[in-house]
Amino acid sequence: MSGMSKIVKTISATILPFITIYGLYIIAHGHLTPGGGFQGGAIVASGFAMIVVAFGSIWTMEKIKEKHLSIIESLGAIGFIGLAFFGLLFGAKMFFANFLVKQDVIPFFNQIGQGLSNINTAGLLPLMNLAVGLKVIAGLFAIVLVMAYATSKIKEGTAK
């Protein structure tokens, strides 16, 4: 796929920041409003998939390789499982223990919820949302990008 017309490209490039900001908002407010890491990551990955459709997979593969997406996804997975293992060291000494809430030593995310606007709550949940969000963004975008690139190679007849 060598990209669509100029109108589609312009509209896609204009609307991509709004989709990305909306998805990141859903990830960041996952512990306050409906949504979370998986939902916001799926929205951001949908925006990037729109870029793949509009600009073509070859152009997109020149900008970002699937190796980098694999690195981002592995970082998300390591962050998620690392936060889970940190629960073994602090707090309740359990796997998946929420050790940041109900303490005063570390002043991050340690308050109890006071309405829908206080983002500094809920302990580990925002960090885990961020990790899972990175993982879902990179994973779903990597699936779409790799499949589109391989099938465009098949269309050109250059696949081995």
Binding site: A42, I43, A49, M50, V144
Partner: peptide
């Protein structure tokens, strides 16, 4: 609903 709209209506159709 958000997960279904994102995954089902966008990414599944693209794939």
């Amino acid at each position: 609903a958000i997960a279904e709209a994102g995954v089902g209506a966008c990414l599944t159709t693209a794939i």
